[in-house]
Amino acid sequence: MTEPKGTMSPPVHVTPSYNPRAQPTPGCDVCAALDKQRRAARECGNLAAAAVAGVEIENHPHRRTKGA
């Protein structure tokens, strides 16, 4: 049996894996709806939902270039 540690491990720092400033593509209804959801989530303090909407905007298929 191993002895329990007397101290805690150092804190883990997690950086965002998305661009919080991801811009919706002009003229795209999907991007516009996601941007609206992101703004509403930020306004009510739901940063997790805002992050999810930002990731979806960033990963929306038409934002990728061919070969990427």
Rank of each mutant, 00 (worst) to 15 (best):
K5P: 11
K5D: 14
V52Q: 08
Q23M: 15
S17W: 09
K66Y: 12
A32G: 13
C44Q: 12
D29Q: 15
N19W: 13
M8A: 07
K36D: 09
V55N: 00
D29H: 15
N19Q: 09
T2A: 07
L34I: 06
T15C: 06
C31S: 14
E3D: 02
M8N: 03
G6I: 09
P4A: 15
G27N: 04
C28Y: 06
V55W: 00
S17E: 13
T7D: 04
E56A: 02
D29G: 15
A32S: 10
I57G: 00
E58Y: 00
A40K: 07
S9A: 15
V55A: 01
S17P: 07
M1T: 07
N19T: 12
P10S: 08
E43Q: 12
R42L: 10
L47V: 08
H60Q: 09
C28N: 14
K5V: 13
A68P: 05
S9E: 15
H13P: 03
T7W: 04
R21D: 13
R21W: 05
L34C: 01
N59E: 12
H13E: 08
T15N: 08
V30G: 00
P61N: 03
N19Y: 15
G27E: 03
A68L: 10
A50S: 10
K5I: 12
E43Y: 03
G67Y: 04
P20I: 04
T15I: 08
S17Q: 12
M1G: 11
R64F: 13
G67Q: 06
N59A: 12
G45P: 03
R39M: 11
P16I: 05
A51S: 02
E3I: 07
P20A: 03
N19A: 10
